[in-house]
Design a protein around this nucleic acid. Structure first.
Lengths: 112, 112
DNA sequence: TTATTGTGCAACCTTTAGGTTACATTAAAT
DNA sequence: ATTTAATGTAACCTAAAGGTTGCACAATAA
């Protein structure tokens, strides 16, 4: 199934899982042990992370190691970055527009 | 209500709304006109965006202008950035670990 | 004054998310 | 050969997400 990275990182538990395996792989049970919820619940989160490519699972014996593949986060990084100019230079870019709206507002208020 | 920025940007419609008003404010109906779904549906998305601080609404007469306040995206940017090293330098950092797992795997496969 | 426009919101519906328990399967340990 | 451990998955439940229609209300236009 094709999954959305934005959706994948929306859940705080999944973000925690990512953080947990970001530096070194862990098997499924090891990940699950760090949470209150059931192993099955964590397994589903992991599965979703694999479906959007943020995690890869490799089997060794009866264990399966979850490894972070965070390249997919570039999609998020790029999306956010396109707006950085806007929120850092907002006053330069929108001052005129806001002034205009402000004027409109005052006119409106006067009419009341 | 306190809302999560990660959750807010998880929905593609909300991301589109953000994109739509990123450079200049639009009133609620103007935003809604650009989508197939109902005005009410869009209104709810906008409301959620205001609840997490990404959008501010200012009333002028009977219109309400939605203005993007994207500073809140820094939370997302920061979260993603902390992992950039990992996905760009993964081979340097994890090579040993992966080699180790690889060795383990081969041993396991041999046993079959 | 009356009609129209822009909007907020209640009430309701359907799908999806996130969780649980129970069970099947395969590898490892006794 | 049996038992134990690690895991995948089905079946089910509840709450939340995302959508709709309908209505109330304030501001504007006629």
């Amino acid at each position: 199934m094709r999954r959305d990275v934005f959706q994948a990182i929306a859940d705080p538990t999944r973000r925690e899982i990512i953080n947990m395996i970001a530096h070194h792989p862990l098997n499924v049970n090891a990940v699950a042990e760090n949470f209150e919820v059931s192993r099955t619940a964590i397994y589903k989160h992991i599965k979703m992370l694999t479906e959007c490519g943020l995690v890869v699972i490799t089997q060794f014996g009866r264990e399966r190691y979850c490894e972070a593949r965070l390249e997919g986060l570039t999609e998020v990084a790029d999306w956010v970055e396109q707006y950085r100019k806007i929120w850092t230079e907002r006053f330069d870019n929108l001052e005129n527009y806001l002034d205009e709206l402000e004027t409109k507002k005052k006119r409106s208020v006067r009419k009341k």
